[in-house]
Amino acid sequence: MDAFCIDMSLNEENKKTIIISAISIATFVILWEFVSVFIVKDSLYLPSFHSVFYAFLERLTSAEIYIDALISFRHFFTGGISAILIGIPIGIIMGWYQNVFRFFNPIIEILRPIPPLAWIPFAIIWLKLTHEAAGMIIFIGMVFPIIVNTYTGFRNIPKIYVEAAKVLGCTKDFDLIRHVAIPAASPMILSGIRVAMGTGWMCLVSAEMFGVSDAGIGYSLWHFYSLHRMELVVLYMFVLGFMGLLIDVLFRFVIEKNLLKWQKGTVI
């Protein structure tokens, strides 16, 4: 009977959440539509909800938006994968060898605060107007949080795991890193990648906007602005938001279901 009550109340809570969320979104849309149609009355300043919605329906059937999305994903993954491939090994050796940390840390602390977008001139000069140039900006945005989280994770590994491994015969640095340090630090490393993906996504629009590339969601958004098609600008803003959300949800799903299952209580 008790369990039944708890079940009921949980369902009730869920229902409440869904209903209030729906009301929230509806209020937002109605308010937006009302303000734009009756108060602002200028689609340059605030395109109405219905114009954005029509633009969405219209664009849905054209290839352009999908190409833009694919190109943006390409920029994002070019930068992201290179940031992971370069950032994690650097973070690992920094976290394991104190002297490597001492050597790299000053360089990293000097370069890290430079906003990734400040690298755009060099991205263009080094890589010309290519997808790789856009990728480089995302790389810069992502590599530092990955390095910092990796070495922080390494430096915070409970000593007991390393000692336990040593007395079991795992005494070489390479083996200790591979079998103990990386798994022990993996929650921290993965949360670094997740934070970095957020930063990388923020850099995407600007990397494409400043002409480093000639396609992509960010590029097209800027292009629509120059045409003053503000309803398309708003549409692309939402597309960026949803793509970012999708990437984060997918990443979390894959990680929590697979790599970090040992952290949860119910694994069997």
Binding site: Y161, A165, K166, L168, G169, W262, V267
Partner: peptide, 26 residues
């Protein structure tokens, strides 16, 4: 340190990312 000198610690020292058999066979 080495495999011929086994040690059991006061703190819990099992590798939390390995299940029992993987811990024991490590």
């Amino acid at each position: 340190p080495g495999p011929k000198k086994g040690m059991v610690f006061q703190e819990y020292s099992l590798f939390p990312w390995k299940n029992v058999i993987d811990n024991v066979s490590f």
